[in-house]
Amino acid sequence: MANDILSKENIVLNEKAATKEDAIRLAGEILVNKGYVEESYVDQMFEREKITTTYMGNYVAIPHGTEDAKKAVNHSGLSIVQLREGVDFGDGNIAKLIIGIAGKDNEHLEILSQIAIVCSEEENVEKLIQAEDKETFISMFNEVN
């Protein structure tokens, strides 16, 4: 995965979020602050969540914008928020890794497949939930290629 898509600055360790909205906002604000997306993209992340949950199972949620949000994406990027205590994403689904995605053109499909490969293994997810350093995230997501 290209370094400009996921850098250490895009990762927040041991954060806390009271609600899934807080968690989505945290992930979205990283994308905004790093210039991947316009502010309006965060609103589209909330819209997407209303349509269908972005909880993927295995303690992972992948909030992203709606189809309409594509025009708010400047370039592809990822944000990762580690919530060791977790946050309820609805129906008792607890998310401990919030991975915000902004994909330019169809790059988000490739990014999603890389995330899916890493996060399909329970031991990988557990390692990321417990990680004490950002390098763990960088190396695990870069090993996929």
Rank of each mutant, 00 (worst) to 15 (best):
N3P: 12
E110V: 05
F141Q: 01
V12Y: 12
N74H: 13
E49M: 02
E38G: 08
M56P: 06
D22M: 09
R25G: 03
L128P: 10
A69I: 03
E121M: 14
L128Y: 13
V118N: 10
R84Q: 07
G100Y: 01
I129V: 15
E47W: 08
D4N: 15
I129C: 03
A116I: 14
V12W: 11
D22H: 12
K20F: 01
L128F: 00
S79C: 04
N106E: 15
L109G: 13
A95R: 02
V118L: 00
A2I: 10
G92D: 14
E49N: 03
E15C: 06
L26C: 03
V37Q: 04
N3S: 15
E122N: 13
Y41E: 08
N74A: 07
I98Y: 13
L97F: 07
K34P: 06
M56I: 11
D4A: 07
Y55A: 08
I138Y: 02
A102V: 02
D68I: 08
F89I: 06
E132H: 05
M1H: 10
G100N: 14
M45T: 13
E38A: 09
Y41H: 10
A131W: 12
Q130P: 07
T52G: 12
E21P: 02
P63D: 05
V32W: 03
A131S: 12
D105V: 04
A102W: 07
K71I: 07
D22Y: 03
E47P: 01
S120G: 15
L78N: 00
L6V: 10
G28R: 00
K134V: 07
I94Q: 11
E39Q: 06
Y41Q: 10
I99M: 03
K20I: 01
T52A: 15
K96E: 11
V42L: 14
L13K: 05
I80Q: 01
Y41D: 06
L83C: 00
D4H: 14
I138A: 09
G90F: 06
E67G: 03
E126Y: 13
I99P: 00
V37N: 10
N14G: 06
N145W: 11
D88G: 05
H64V: 03
S76N: 11
I138K: 10
V37H: 05
D133N: 15
I11C: 04
